[in-house]
Amino acid sequence: MKIVVAVKRTLDAYVKVRIRQDRSNVDLASAKMAMNPFCEIAVEAAVRLKEAGVATEIVVVSVGSDKVQEQLRGAMALGADRGVHVQADDELESLNIAKLLRAVVEKEQPSLVLLGKQAIDSDNNQVGQMLAALCNYPQATFASRIAIADGQATVAREVDGGEQVVKVTLPAIITTDLRLNEPRYAKLPEIMKAKKKPVEVLTPAQLGVTLRQHLKLVEVNDPPPRKAGVRVGSVQELVAKLKNEAKVIA
């Protein structure tokens, strides 16, 4: 069974983002970038399925500028077999990304496509569901457990009220939640080996996809600042302030 994993290059999760002075967009010029944490979890899930003998090949795909090859190499150092780089703007909309990924899925014909549930830059939480719609595949989003058997995936999903378990027929789309696994770190020999693994570079035209803009970014702003708070010296003082000053408790 072949697995395709889609990974996104994003701002490092522990770096605070800045906006450009003209507020036209965020400023990533010299920011530290990394693989989106949810995508790391997706790669780890694929590698574990391969280690368990369920999967035979892992193809990792990323859409973006040449820099995304860094993340493809990173995924290959963790165990993916080869990479597909779809050359495009780094700020493509979800629907366009989903269309490009569908073309890759049609080409690769995997049994399973793994994506992160959410990119921590756009916070969109869309591409997996859109890809499922475009491929007419079932979707199991926000996965915290995955079991594959008899051409089906049984997936525990993290939902608002607790957990929901669904069964989807393969080929299917699964998006990963944080508790699915804890990604491993790449070891130096694997990093060296990954440099020799093949990466195919494709353009939207080669994939037969026409990109279309649906959304325009008008401006970005900092959220309204909170006014400076105060320190209280004791629980008594805290309770008094909450009652008399903030008036949030009776």
Binding site: Q126, L217, V220, P223
Partner: peptide, 30 residues
């Protein structure tokens, strides 16, 4: 397109939504 987590509606096609864990508010027009 789909617009996620709309926090404010400016007009029938313009929306404010959080990005980067709410550290930035983006105004987008559809």
């Amino acid at each position: 397109a789909q617009i996620s987590e709309v926090m404010a509606i400016i007009d029938a096609s313009t929306f404010v939504r959080p990005i980067y864990a709410g550290n930035v508010l983006a105004t987008v027009q559809s």
